[in-house]
């Protein structure tokens, strides 16, 4: 069994606009070739009653995410969090981040790191 994760990413996906800044910031940070990277953005168009829809974007950390260990050691935010245009991502200790889930439409990721 894997070790218990200590750090994670809290994402307030209500405000994720699908701008891809996180995805490209990660590619730049680690010089990933196109098609690879530590975080990917997906678009979901949710069908609701009465011909209504909700447009949702979701950034998902991948198997390549290392939570920017080098950057965080220097006291910086991970590249994705630093550049998130909507400022809807937060890095921190999972236990602390869990306390910040004080509104709906949030997700706490504990990447493989």
């Amino acid at each position: 069994m894997s070790r218990k994760p200590e750090y994670g990413l809290l994402i307030d996906y209500e405000y994720c606009t699908g701008c891809y800044a996180c995805q490209v910031a990660c590619a730049q940070e680690y010089e990933w070739p196109a098609g690879m990277g530590g975080i990917r953005v997906i678009e979901i168009v949710e069908k609701l009653p009465n011909d209504k829809h909700y447009l949702k974007f979701m950034p998902i950390p991948t198997e390549l995410c290392i939570l920017c260990a080098g950057r965080t050691k220097e006291g910086k935010n991970p590249a994705c969090v630093h550049h998130c245009m909507a400022a809807c991502m937060k890095y921190g200790k999972i236990e602390e981040l869990a306390k910040e889930i004080n509104k709906p439409r949030m997700v706490l990721w504990a990447p493989k790191a």
Binding site: C19, Y20, A21, Q23, V24, A25, A27, Q28, E29, H82, H83, C84, M85, A87
Partner: peptide, 24 residues
């Protein structure tokens, strides 16, 4: 080798769009 958003800048406050982040 890298470009980052300037956290002290009043316009973007550290944030940066993907086109700028792809400058390399």
């Amino acid at each position: 080798i890298k470009i980052e958003g300037d956290p002290d800048h009043p316009m973007n406050r550290g944030r940066l769009c993907p086109r700028c982040l792809a400058m390399t």
